[in-house]
């Protein structure tokens, strides 16, 4: 790929901290002829972090594979906002089949490629948290268990956004959704429910599992690179802000993802064959309220009729993550 220097790119692509990176170290997004796998013209909401993450993931994968990439997409916002006939925003061989089956469709693609001696062509399956944690779980677990050569990417915006913000198995406790309204005795999503798919993936002892957020896109890019170095089943779980579903400002999507990591509610780590191999420590810890308060889906926890008990339980969750993943211990691996 020819490297063309662009003077005014986002710092996330050209620099780390205040340091301008050497050309070799720069993000794939820094190059003028980056693959633009998900190109302009799609219909995502302003500030949609799912769109942002998808472009970073697939552009990186395109670069790593030299363009030999095929993608299976589950039903959901990403699919709907990118492909209303006759327009498609994808510049990669891409298929949408159903809501529940992206992992299996990807397995099929990999199988044909393998049978035809084209193992150089790599396969990514992608979907939302609903398509991953809930309806797609059986197909996903099957793909993991057989160790099929697929990278599955979950864009976790913590609800069924495409159908109007209903609760999913990845919706955090207390969050208001359209099926867990903020009314009644315990408003919002129920405590003690929900699942964290990265752990389920790890239980399959697949070669690589990682979490990431749109707050640290360089980390996301690095994890895609690592994932693509491995063969077999791999899983990447990305927290992606959804301004519509979370009730946040469209300009705050990156900030919200950062607050989620810095308060301890979303742990960022990598694991190989079921064991955690790397953790991104919290750089400057913030109280969970800093993350929750700007989101309308948690509005009922605050104010005169707020819910201190719920806040306390959420604080407890952050504490537990910090303990479990050693999020405050610089350089320490679990």
């Amino acid at each position: 790929m020819a490297k063309v220097h662009i003077p005014f790119m986002q710092t996330g692509a050209l620099a780390v901290g205040g340091r301008l990176l050497d050309e070799d170290e720069r993000s794939v997004q820094a190059w003028q002829d980056r693959p633009s796998t998900l190109t302009r013209g799609h219909r995502a909401c302003q500030g949609c972090a799912e769109a942002l993450a998808a472009r970073w993931v697939l552009d990186t994968a395109m670069e790593v594979t030299g363009g030999k990439l095929m993608v299976a997409n589950a039903t959901g916002c990403l699919e709907v906002f990118s492909t209303l006939y006759p327009e498609s925003a994808w510049r990669v061989p891409w298929i949408h089949s159903l809501f529940a089956n992206a992992a299996s469709v990807a397995t099929g693609i990999a199988a044909t490629n393998h049978a035809k001696g084209r193992d150089d062509i790599r396969v990514i399956a992608q979907g939302g948290d609903g398509g991953t944690a809930d309806i797609g779980m059986a197909c996903l677990s099957g793909m993991f268990e057989r160790n099929d050569d697929v990278l599955y990417v979950c864009y976790d915006n913590q609800a069924y956004m495409n159908t109007g913000v209903q609760r999913s198995g990845a919706t955090p406790p207390a969050a208001r959704t359209s099926t867990t309204p903020a009314v009644g005795l315990s408003p919002g999503n129920t405590f003690g429910q929900g699942k964290f798919v990265p752990k389920i993936a790890m239980a399959h002892e697949i070669p690589y599992v990682a979490t990431a957020t749109v707050a640290d896109l360089r980390d996301l890019e690095a994890k895609v690179r690592t994932a693509m170095k491995h063969r077999g089943a791999r899983y990447l779980h990305i927290l992606v802000t959804c301004p519509l579903g979370w009730g946040t400002k469209t300009a705050a999507s990156i900030k919200m993802a950062r607050l989620a990591t810095q308060c301890g509610l979303f742990p960022v780590f990598e694991a190989e064959y079921g064991d955690i191999t790397g953790v991104t420590p919290i750089r400057s810890r913030v109280p969970v309220e800093d993350y929750l308060r700007p989101q309308r889906r948690f509005a009922h926890l605050f104010g005169p009729r707020g819910d201190e008990a719920a806040l306390e339980r959420i604080r407890g969750q952050a504490e537990r993550n910090i303990r479990q993943y050693h999020l405050l211990e610089e350089g320490v691996l679990a």
């Binding site: 633009s36 190109t39 302009r40 013209g41 006939y85 006759p86 327009e87 498609s88 510049r91």
Partner: peptide, 11 residues
């Protein structure tokens, strides 16, 4: 399997 032009191409 509706084949499509990309949004880009349309633009």
């Amino acid at each position: 399997s509706l084949g499509t032009a990309t949004a880009d191409e349309k633009a």
